[in-house]
Design a protein around this nucleic acid. Structure first.
Length: 125
RNA sequence: UCAGGUGGCUGGGCGGCCGCGGUGUCAGGCUUGAAAAGGCGGCACCGAGGAAAGUCCGGGCUCCACGGAGACAAGGUGCCGGGUAAUUCCCGGCGGGGGUGACCCCAGGGAAAGCGCAGCAGAGAAAGACCGCCGGACGUGCGCGUCCGGUAAGGGUGAAACGGUGCGGUAAGAGCGCACCGCCCCGACCGCAAGGAAGGGGGCUAGGCAAGCCCCACCUGGAGCAAGACCGAAUAGGGAUGGGCCGUGGCUUUUGCCACACAUGCGUCUCCGCAUGCCAUCCGGGUAGGUCGCACCAGGCAUGUCGCAAGGCAUGUCGCAGAUGAAUGGUCGUCGCGCUUGUUCCGUUCCGGAACAAGCGACACAGAACCCGGCUUAUAGGCCACCUGAUCCC
RNA sequence: CGGAGUAUAGCUCAGCCUGGUAGAGCACCGUCUUCGGGAGGCGGGGGUCGCAAGUUCAAAUCUUGCUACUCCGA
């Protein structure tokens, strides 16, 4: 297993987020993760978002930084190449203990990967 | 010691592990490429705030408008002097108000230019007479009543009633007279000015609201970095040139339009329906996107000097964030700090203080987005200087 | 980021400019009508006028500062 991990692209455009919102969703107590397969390429996509309900700008920035760090650690291990992932912060993300937040992200990624495996869920309505 | 006032400072420290953005640099390394250049990478150095916030003012900067000057409208400002690029900001004064005091607060021009407003209550709300008081005449049933006149001291209402208190005076009263206070006018003299003010005069005339209209004086072109400049994919329009097609009929100067035919595509085929009407090259506008604007200045610090101060000047020195789904961090340890709880000790009780232990703590408020100067608002804890009041001791 | 606007009863809105009594419709409660309900008639309750200062005798209204929400601009 010495293959270099696939490069991670940041999702920046509004339509990229809306595209992912049409895909599969995994809800954990510290985070919501959306994923959807994209045309072509073995690249991973990752986007982060936090609404005003999460808190003021200090809290929103901190929450996105924590999710970004969690994704940097876990996405190369559990993410499926060719998929875009959107991490949505919840009101609990800021106070969630760091090991628990990692567990949430890992569990969500594993769940999404098994659902989207090519064997059993190729055709989705 | 306690209680306060004013001004200013600070806004967790150190260390592991793993990351992010920028700038500079690297005949070197990997990679795309013909090259230029770009990407990955190595090294070095930087990398949030006093409010970065609210967007309330003032400027710079950019575009638009504009021949000059003035007037009007609209909006703003409003004691005086100074500071500044400029301000509604700041400093120093003046006046008024509050506080025992240090000190604090004030949109603080004009109400004898005009209009307007003042509910309810009250006789009366800008100039008035209800109850009263007094005099005279008449009638008396001797209690008083009616009429005429004088008065504004007393009553009551109100936020506010046209000087206050005392003495004299009077039929009763009244600045009617006098003393003191208040008010108005003049005002030597002081001050650059706002203003202060010795003194003199006036018997009092001229109530409030201008953060109501208004008057006076002064100021103001509009929009905002999503400003603005440049580069520019795919697709669909536009224009030019060249070639091809240029069927029939009608309208039409032409361009062109309509119908039929033809070709292509779609609805599985026919019928039928719908849509489209050749190709190449070049030009221009322009969307997504990108680049610039974009960080070296009304700059910070130190010293000297002028000024009561705000601040000015001179010299030296420093280089101090530039992101764009948006970097400046994530996590762990330790120290410090705070809060809560418990134990022990001090303390006459309450209040409180000290030590130890445990738990909790994005360790307060809060994240640059073109840049500065102000204002306003949020802010745990800590520190410094000066001053005031009370108490105790000498 | 920049620029505008709104906040009044449970809901939708007047009143604000020109300051003194806070009002309408729907909803709610009581009652009449009906065998009962609805509709209708009559009567009634309910409002820190977003918050805080200031001006004024007096503020929903005027002024200033905050808070929340809405809209517009490539």
């Amino acid at each position: 297993m010495d293959t270099t991990p696939p490069a991670i692209d940041r999702l920046k455009k509004r339509r990229e987020f809306l595209y992912c919102a049409q895909g599969k969703k995994a809800v954990r107590s510290g985070v919501v993760v959306q994923a959807r397969q994209r045309d072509g390429a073995l690249r991973l996509g990752a986007g982060f978002t936090a609404t005003k309900k999460v808190g003021n700008s200090v809290v929103r920035s901190r929450v996105k930084r924590r999710l970004r760090e969690a994704a940097r650690l876990l996405l190369p291990l559990h993410g499926r190449p060719g998929f875009d992932y959107v991490f949505i912060a919840r009101a609990t993300t800021a106070d969630r203990a760091w090991p628990h937040l990692l567990q949430d992200v890992e569990s969500a990624l594993v769940s999404l990967a098994s659902d989207e495996a090519p064997g059993n869920a190729k055709q989705r309505a």
